[in-house]
Structure formats: C-alpha cells, structure tokens
Amino acid sequence: MTSRILIAALVLTAAIPALLMGGVSGVVAADGKPGPALSGPVVSSGPHPITLDRPAEATNREIVDDVKRVRNYADQPPLIPHAVRDYQIDLNVNKCLTCHDRRNVEGSQAPMVSVTHFQDRDGQTLGTVSPRRYFCTQCHVPQTDAKPIVGNRFRDFDAVLSTAPAKEGAK
C-alpha cells in the first residue's frame, strides 16, 4: 500500500514540469521558429498548438488559359499553359505525347517536343523521345494563381545586362 502511494507521488512529481510548461506554453506543432517576416501569405503549417484546428487555406485556381508564359532563361522547361488533370503518364500510355510527339502534332496543333527530348545523355539523338524525358511533369509544371511564399530577387539576363556598369569602350 505504502509503496503504491510512493510510486504515485513520484510520478506526479516527475510530471510537474510538463504540467507547468503545458499550462504556460502549450504543445506546439513546430516546423521551426517563426522566422523573420516573409513577404507573402502566412504559412498555415507554421507554429501553432496542435490542439488548435486551423481552417485550411483556400486552394488556388489553376491557370489553364492556353497562354504561353515567358521563359526566364533559354533552357528553362516551359510552363504548361493548359489543364493536365488526370493525364496519365505511365508504362501504358503517355497522354502528353498523344499531342506533343512528333507524329501527333499535325492533328493536335501542339508544339512538338524539341530535339533535346530525343537525346540521350551522350547527346545521341534517338528515334523516339528519350527515356529520361518520358516523365514530362518532372520538368514541366502547370501553374496556379498562388502567390509565392518566399520572395525572390531573380532577374533575367536582359535585366542584369541593363544594370551592369558600362564597360570601357562600349559606346
């Protein structure tokens, strides 16, 4: 009997710090400390008590207007300007290639995959799309109207050139 009381007492003492802390700070689902203020929306997975139900943010709309977007540099994989919902890419079928493959562009009027897609890693141009280019969405992605969570200061080639200090002799 006495030993049981003793054990209970010990357990309680051990739990004191946890109880106190819990009362003060709560348990936090932390993905790290709240960093310096970011430009952009608050990340919903950020630090908040796990007991708190945060409403999910609205999902963003897909951009499927069929308007090609500017490429930031020459060898950027162009963004997909159209819907790709449920497009199957696997051993059985590659839905993208039903429009973008060499043989199919006349009917689909889609831009043909460029010659780089036919090249293997040794630069050999193959007869069909190279296996390493088979999974299109590895490189090409559709866009939504989501605002970037993290800002970035990327400037393209022309922007960099226009602000570069004028060189000696350049007229």
């Binding site: 079928v93 006349e106 009917g107 689909s108």
Partner: peptide, 10 residues
C-alpha cells in the same frame, strides 16, 4: 496499354 491506338485527332 495503349500501343497501336491513335488519338482521335490523328
């Protein structure tokens, strides 16, 4: 497996 099946627009 879709081998041999042409898309409708071809």
């Amino acid at each position: 497996d879709m081998h041999g099946i042409e898309p409708g627009w071809n």
